[in-house]
């Protein structure tokens, strides 16, 4: 009925967090550039990137794309099934008071499960990407 509302809420929160992380990274970079070109600025970057070089903006960007992509296509499906309309109250279940508890139950069960599952997949993805990059970094280091 409106299960995609839960991942959409998570997507909005992630977008805000990503925006804040991006601002912090830009600030750190500008501070680093003011220190001078010859100086070591790696300690500035350590706060915002891991050993593998993946920044939080990049990692959150993946979660953001997964969530917004899924939410958009699910919204299309809900429009197709007549569960979502493009004018108020937007959710057809809101028209009938008897449907509201069913809708809320679906949001709590299916919507929350969707959000948790997508987040878990993202955690796995970040872990694998970091391990892979660490390994390639070590290989390159050993060659030198």
């Amino acid at each position: 009925m409106a299960c995609f509302v839960v991942p959409m809420t998570e997507a909005i929160i992630v977008s805000v967090v990503k925006h804040i992380a991006k601002k912090k990274e830009e600030k750190a970079l500008s501070e680093a550039s003011t220190l001078g070109k010859g100086e070591d600025v790696s300690f500035m970057e350590e706060n915002h990137t891991t050993q593998t070089g993946l920044s939080w903006t990049q990692k959150l960007g993946w979660l953001n794309a997964l969530l917004w992509g899924g939410v958009f296509l699910l919204a299309v499906e809900h429009i197709w099934h007549g569960e979502v309309i493009l004018w108020p109250p937007f959710l057809t279940a809101m028209r009938n008071p008897n449907d509201i508890p069913i809708m809320l139950h679906e949001m709590a069960s299916v919507g929350t499960s969707m959000a948790i599952f997508v987040t878990l997949v993202w955690v796995g993805m970040v872990f694998i990407a970091e391990q892979k990059m660490k390994r390639s970094f070590c290989k390159g280091f050993n060659r030198n």
Partner: peptide
């Protein structure tokens, strides 16, 4: 293309949960 992958995978994961439940 990574953006397109994320769009499709996001929806696939969400529908997988929906179908299983």
């Amino acid at each position: 293309l990574s953006t397109l992958c994320f769009i499709y995978w996001g929806a696939t994961l969400m529908w997988l949960v929906d179908h299983v439940i």
